[in-house]
Every structure is written in C-alpha cells, then in structure tokens.
C-alpha cells in the first residue's frame, strides 16, 4: 500500500518512523510513545479520531501487505508493538462500552447459532442497502465503494488469522468459508477480485489503499476492529463471532446493493460481486453460526461471551459507520474526507 497522508501527530510520527530504518528511528520512537499516550488520553472519541485510527490502521497494515517504503523488520518491533497496544487498549475499551450483551444463551451449538441469528436480525440501525437500492446517485455508489474497498480488496484476510487458533469442527468450518471467499482455487473468483472488477466498472482505481486519504476514521475503525480481533489470539472468540455476524447480515443487503447498481445501468461486471454474495452467504451464515461459532463454544464454553461480543461489536461499529455515511448524504454532502478526490 502506498504511504497515506498523516492526519495528526501520531499518524505523522508512525509514518515517519516506519519510513526510516530501525537504527535511525530510536529518537522518533521514544517521542511516538509519549505522543500516543497523550493522544489516547485526550481523544473525545477514538472511534471518530482520524489521527489515531489511521495510525492504528498503518500499524496493522505491517501485518498484511505492508506499506511502501516501510522495512519488513518493523512488523515485530517491540517499541512499535507497544504503541499499537496503547491505541488498541483504548479502542477495545471504547468498543466494549458500545456493546451490551444482555443475558447469555446456552453453550450448545444450536443455542449459540440461534442467538447470533437473533442478534443480527435485531440490527435496527439505518439501512444503507435500501438507500443504495432505491435512491443512491452514481456519485454515492462510488462513495459507497470507497468505504467498502478498505475491507473488500482484502476480503476475508483478517478472519484468516484465526485459522491456526481453532481446531476441529470450528476450524474446518472457517476454512470451508474462507475457501469460498478465496475463489475455491480460481483467482478471478476471489471475492476481492470480484470487488476490484466492480470498482473498475465504475471507472475507479482498484489499487489497495488508493482512496485511503478520503476514507473517514469510522470506516478505518470498522476495519481496525477486525484486525484487533484477528491479530490477538485472546480475542479468537471475537473474530469468529465477527465473521458470523458479517455472514448473517450479507445475503439480503447484497441483493439490494446489486439492484442499486443495475438501476444505474451497470451490468454483470459490476453486480456479480453482490450477486455472488447473496448465494454464498446464505450458505456461509449457516456454517458460520452452527459449525464455526457454535462449534467453538461447544469446544470451549468460556469463549461464549467473546463470540457474542465480536458479533455485537462488528454490528455496532458498522452501524456508526452507516450512520456517518447516511447523515452526510441526507444533508446533501459527501461522507468522505475530501469530496474533490472523487471527482476525477
């Protein structure tokens, strides 16, 4: 990914640090620690904090495809990991505040699956899919793709980090889902590749990170949440619950998204990504709820609260993201950081 533009002191120092060699960055690292602690203590709301979410996103990116100019030895640098953990701790605490789990269900696979379906069916936030289906303008479709691109161009990757942390039934289920996400051996059928094709069909740049500078904090937070869950083994229940919630809230919205793109005259090259998800996720949601999440809880009942937390957290943060986008659109504006970047 190309280096994004900094959004404040923390992200500027993170970007400057990883652009330097480990040997030459010691002074910057010491300052970064202090600046990060101050920013975390002073932020009004870390979920909407552009500087901290971008800094966290860049620190996580070192574990994915990397950042241009950043040496690979930064990935496991202890000082940088400490900075990441400082932001992560505040981020996780904020998300836990946002979520109320209520009474826990039983620890059988069926009880877990039923509770996940109840939780995801209850989601009462604003509906982006109905708006996209009926009302979104062409520019709004492009904005919609900008928000989605951060995850969809690396679709499935954060949850893949969980594979070696699971065993037996839950592992087999996760791999079965991921194999589908990754195209069952056909690169052109990878969901990330189908999404890239949709972007190209709308005349957009499908390079990973191409629109990062216009992507707002809450969209980065939605992605950072998956990385937080995926990269910390202690949160393996949460990443499993998160994936289950994503699968369970996908089929019908994707049918509506497809309709919105068809309404503007776009053909199969643009809509196949969405159409594929209608059928795929109707399968995945059953496997995810019963075998992956339910199977994990049956194997280790202590993970039940984490599984439900992961699901509820994903829904809660994405509801905030949807609200941000819909509020901007309803007031006639753009949901992106600088709308002129989309005009090209």
């Amino acid at each position: 990914m190309k280096q994004p533009s900094a959004r404040g002191d923390v992200s500027a120092l993170v970007l400057a640090t990883i652009a330097a060699t480990v040997e030459s960055a010691q002074d910057g690292l010491a300052r970064l620690g202090a600046v990060t602690r101050a920013a975390v203590a002073g932020t009004p709301d870390i979920l909407h904090d552009d500087d901290l979410q971008l800094a966290l996103f860049c620190l996580y990116e070192l574990h994915y495809s990397g950042i241009d100019g950043a040496g690979d030895d930064w990935e496991w640098n202890p000082d940088l990991l400490r900075v990441r953990q400082c932001i992560e701790a505040a981020f996780e605490a904020r998300v836990r505040d946002e979520v109320d789990l209520g009474d826990l269900p039983g620890t059988t696979s069926e009880a877990v699956c039923a509770e996940l379906f109840r939780l995801t069916g209850d989601d009462s936030g604003p509906s982006m899919s109905r708006f996209v289906s009926k009302s979104a303008s062409n520019d709004q479709l492009r904005e919609f793709l900008v928000h989605k691109a951060v995850y969809q161009l690396k679709e499935a990757d954060p949850h893949t980090f969980a594979i070696p942390r699971l065993t037996g039934r839950s592992k087999a289920a996760l791999v079965e889902i991921q194999a589908d996400e990754y195209g069952n051996g056909l690169p052109a059928r990878m969901h990330s590749a189908l999404f890239a094709r949709t972007m190209r069909e709308l005349g957009m740049d499908d390079t990973y990170g191409a629109y990062l500078d216009v992507t707002p904090a809450i969209t980065l937070a939605s992605n950072n949440l998956m990385s937080l869950f995926g990269l910390n083994r202690r949160l393996r229940g949460a990443i499993v619950g998160h994936l289950a919630a994503y699968e369970m809230t996908s089929s019908q919205p994707n049918r509506l998204y497809s309709r919105g793109f068809k309404r503007h005259g776009y053909g199969e090259n643009a809509t196949e990504y969405f159409d594929e998800h209608v059928e795929a996720d109707a399968v995945h949601e059953q496997i995810a709820g019963r075998d992956m999440a339910g199977g994990l809880v049956e194997e280790d009942p202590r993970l039940l609260p984490d599984v439900l937390f992961g699901a509820a957290a994903g829904l809660a943060v994405d509801t905030l993201m949807t609200r941000h986008i819909m509020d901007a659109w309803e007031s006639g504006g753009s949901s992106l950081r600088r709308s002129e970047a989309m005009a090209s």
């Binding site: 379906f117 069916g121 089929s251 019908q252 049918r255 209608v278 059928e279 996720d281 109707a282 949601e285």
Partner: peptide
C-alpha cells in the same frame, strides 16, 4: 421464498 431457487438466498429470515 428464495429468488435463487433451488438455492437459499436468506429470504426465510424476512
């Protein structure tokens, strides 16, 4: 209720 029959499209939830 699926519009993708014989496959499921999640319509049972609606």
């Amino acid at each position: 209720a699926s519009v993708l029959k014989p496959y499921c499209d999640g319509s049972h939830k609606l």
